[in-house]
Amino acid sequence: MTHNQGHDQARKQIVVAMTGATGQILGIKTLQSLRGLNVETHLIMSHWAETTLKYETDYSPANVRALADHTHSVHDMAAPVSSGSFKCDGMIIVPCSAKSLGAIAAGYGEDLIARTADVMLKERRRLILAVRESPYSLIHLRNMATVTEAGGVITSPVPAFYTRPDTIDDLIDQWIGRTLDLVDLDTQAFQRWKGWEKD
């Protein structure tokens, strides 16, 4: 084994999946943050993620894929990430559509995203779902509860305002920072709560 191989094995590995829900910039910024933290990323993009991406951003699917270390087709059910024997530190689905949420809650691995999420749950690894914008139906809420009971974490893209953000980027950085906290990664790119400031 070469020195570089040993170094690569020491890097954290995170699977990032992007579905067709609104909020594609959150997936892009998550990949950028993970790259900045030297985390090895495995990206899965659904067909509708690629379509929504074109409406919401100036990025092309190729631009987004270039941000990841490895990319896998959503249809490739034999990809390494589809197996529990593939060692990784967790999976973030950002953004996560209601359709993908429902498939994961039902254990219905219809594509590589749902299959890999199922693997994370069965292997007791961290699974984070950034479920799309509200409002939610009772079905959505029940599916969120099911995923939570199975060990997943729901983190809807609702920003915090106690930092008094000046820009949308400030809101995004704070949300991504708090989300990556859940996989024990510190972006150091947002303001943490330090209590009320005294007059």
Rank of each mutant, 00 (worst) to 15 (best):
V81A: 02
L180Y: 07
G195F: 05
L43A: 02
Q188R: 14
S83Y: 08
N4L: 15
Q24I: 00
L53E: 04
I44S: 01
D8H: 09
V183A: 03
I14P: 02
H70T: 02
F86T: 01
I92R: 00
G151R: 08
Y136V: 02
T41Y: 14
M91T: 04
T167E: 11
M45P: 01
I104A: 00
R126V: 15
S134A: 15
Y55F: 15
K194G: 11
S82H: 07
I128T: 05
Q9E: 08
F161L: 11
G151V: 08
D169Q: 10
I104S: 00
P165C: 03
Q32P: 06
V183M: 12
P61H: 03
M1P: 09
E50K: 15
F161Q: 05
L67Y: 09
L127Y: 12
G84V: 14
H3L: 14
T146C: 05
A10G: 06
E40P: 06
E123M: 13
V39W: 03
K99D: 12
I139V: 15
I168W: 08
T2P: 05
K12A: 14
G84K: 11
I92Q: 01
V81C: 04
S137V: 08
T19W: 00
G152K: 04
A106D: 05
G23L: 12
R178D: 04
A160V: 13
Q174N: 08
D76Q: 09
S97V: 13
A106M: 06
G151T: 05
Q24V: 00
I176C: 09
R164T: 09
G23C: 13
D184M: 11
R164C: 07
V147I: 14
S134M: 15
G90V: 07
N4D: 03
L26Y: 15
L53I: 01
I168N: 13
T57F: 00
N143A: 07
